[in-house]
């Protein structure tokens, strides 16, 4: 996939280290995300991919290293400053994380109401319906999350992520638990939304089909390090055994 991306870096990660007791998941990880780029982080389960994006959004604290989002060091931000940053950075959870005690409308309204004073365009209802029409699920507005299929829940979660029009979106395994057809639809939706809103994205995945559809650039996270980086074509043609095992 090719898009127009500039060289301006929106996320810059340097020397990131994170351990859980004796398990060193990130050893010295460095990567940069350019504006308008879709960067896929590819790695095995348990390799620290989700830990990486949770560190970026401030849900986890790294042991060492530096994470800058729009030039601001995430580790030194106060709680309020972190909240401000999170308006600009969306996060799509692997489990969708829809609030199961709320309707779809309330789920989408929730982040909007939190930041309404900063949101001057249109009224809440229009924004909710616009977000739902983006994912083709306007009819579900008054349903509960439990009434929807896994694929529909993923679309709603994507709509909720996009509703604040973030500049960066972090996707945590967006196709996990979905059948290949629905997974492909979600991947195309990610690309469409990226084009429509001109977002930059980090996509965590080990689904090669998803990687092929969404990636401008791939970073291989192996043994806690940025093992290799390149386009899908470059990496899929690599002779390196560790890289090849993902593409076989």
């Amino acid at each position: 996939m090719k898009t127009e991306n500039t060289n301006t870096s929106v996320i810059s990660i340097k020397g990131l280290k994170k351990s859980f007791d004796e398990n060193h998941v990130l050893r010295d990880f460095s990567v940069e995300l350019a504006e308008g780029e879709n960067l896929v982080v590819l790695g095995k389960s348990g390799s620290g991919k989700s830990v990486l994006i949770k560190c970026i959004i401030g849900l986890m604290k790294p042991d060492e290293g530096n994470i800058e989002v729009f030039g601001e060091n995430v580790m030194t931000l106060s709680h309020d400053e972190l909240d401000e940053m999170r308006v600009k950075v969306g996060f799509l959870f692997q489990s969708n994380a829809l609030y199961d005690s709320m309707t779809i409308r309330e789920n989408l309204e929730f982040p909007l109401r939190r930041h309404w004073d900063k949101n001057t365009q249109g009224n809440i209802n229009d924004l909710v319906m616009e977000a739902l029409s983006n994912v083709g699920l306007e009819s579900t507005v008054d349903k509960m999350p439990s009434e929807l299929s896994g694929g529909m829940q993923k679309r709603i979660a994507l709509a909720r992520t996009l509703i604040l029009k973030p500049k960066i979106i972090l996707y945590d395994e967006p196709t996990t638990g979905l059948d290949p057809i629905t997974g492909k639809e979600i991947c195309h939706l990610i690309v469409d939304m990226q084009k429509k809103y001109n977002t930059s994205s980090i996509i965590i995945s080990h689904d090669i089909n998803c990687v092929k559809i969404t990636a401008n650039r791939i970073v291989m996270l192996i043994d806690g390090l940025c093992y290799a980086t390149g386009t899908f074509e470059e990496l899929s043609n690599s002779k390196d055994e560790k890289i090849q095992q993902f593409f076989d």
């Binding site: 949770k54 959004i57 849900l59 909240d83 401000e84 999170r86 308006v87 950075v89 969306g90 996060f91 959870f93 692997q94 489990s95 994380a97 829809l98 609030y99 199961d100 929730f110 982040p111 939190r114 930041h115 909720r160 604040l164």
Partner: peptide, 10 residues
């Protein structure tokens, strides 16, 4: 992860 989702939505 609903609590985390709340946190990342500010």
């Amino acid at each position: 992860e609903q609590i985390d989702a709340m946190e990342v939505s500010g």
